[in-house]
Design a protein around this nucleic acid. Sequence first.
DNA 1: GAGTGGTCTAGACCACAAT
DNA 2: TTGTGGTCTAGACCACTCC
Lengths: 239, 239
Amino acid sequence: MTAQDRQELPPIFQRIKDYILGEIRSGNLLEGDLIPTELALAAQFNVARMTVNRALRELTAEQILVRVQGSGTYVAQQKYQATLVTVKNIAEEIRNRGHIHKSTLHTLEQKKATLLLTKQFELHNDAILFHSVIVHFENEIPIQVEDRWVNPNIAPDYLLQDFSKITPNEYLMATAPLHAAEYSIEACVPTRKVAKMLAIELHNPCLVLKRRTHSNGHIASVAAFWYPGHRYRFAGSFS
Amino acid sequence: MTAQDRQELPPIFQRIKDYILGEIRSGNLLEGDLIPTELALAAQFNVARMTVNRALRELTAEQILVRVQGSGTYVAQQKYQATLVTVKNIAEEIRNRGHIHKSTLHTLEQKKATLLLTKQFELHNDAILFHSVIVHFENEIPIQVEDRWVNPNIAPDYLLQDFSKITPNEYLMATAPLHAAEYSIEACVPTRKVAKMLAIELHNPCLVLKRRTHSNGHIASVAAFWYPGHRYRFAGSFS
DNA sequence: GAGTGGTCTAGACCACAAT
DNA sequence: TTGTGGTCTAGACCACTCC
């Protein structure tokens, strides 16, 4: 069968994927069930085995199926209902909304690490770190306080940057490739300083995103991002 | 070249992927750059074009490359530094920590939808919905208030369930396959009812996860999950 | 028209699992 | 040993972009 014969139909591998997905949705195939072999599906659809292989390989990448060499292909266990939240570069996010991003630099210094920070950075006791505090504005309204500590070994020129033109995030992404990160999201009452910078009351809760990033086997940066709870939310969707 | 010749080496398509990724990491290939054609890479690695095709197709699925038919293959724009938070079934999460999950049912009813709810569910004005309010405990400490509205058409037997044995999440996952969801995370002060159920003060901020789930082309469920801010955080890591 | 990626074929050899 | 998936080949025709 040529592509012309198929006309407006989706590619064969896609139709095989749709067929399998349909069998799962309809209940004909249940979690853990063995599905037909590649050769059986190839015969059923009258196509080459490679075409079936691609369909099943992609469904495996999508975690719909599980394949075991020598054994067979199974319907994967249903995943938990999960929510994924993506937190991006704040300046980019604001610009993507068509709004104006501005930032003000409150602190840019080098400072001896506290005990907690030396542990977070996995550095020796008297380590010197770079520290910046920046407030980000969306259309002149403060939307984020970025309190960041940076490992001088990873970004030695950090203090020389013009953070009105480039965000620390953008600078670090360009300087130190991101290899891994840990993060948490909490709801906290703001400190006096943070409340003042965000122009909110002390009793207004904040969303606090904390993130530690790794680069080249070292801790590159430890940052806390404070958002006013009544002006900001993390949101998204998935399917 | 046979698999035996290659011995312990990774498959060819993987080595081509690694090569491209290395060129990007090293800076030899920059964002937007055109990469060699399939035929050029096939000649360079002395393999069939299909093998190169698989490597490039997978890198495209991973959003490392962008392919344009008739034009060429390009290095995709660098992704933002992103933080992904996964929120799972609360009962499962607690058990995974080795702790004891318990829940108490505060409300289980059918009720006429408010105007806001009819819009969220995309239903007509006088629609009847199921409503449940459940408090989840971790080692006897309240950790989540689950306030959930459910579409009766999707889960007609919702009111008959024993939610001390199965969470609404688990029941809905088994009854109505999850196709998509929207969600948000906010920091809010609790309502009086929520504060009482969570045994916290009115001034203690809460993390509020809101989630709307789709199943079979309909809105299955609209839920708000309240967590005490000082006892709970969303956390995770990625690399 | 030349060159690109998109898809597909009909074989092949291999590693691994079940028996 | 048989059957499974994992990978690869050396072609092919097509749709599309760019010149």
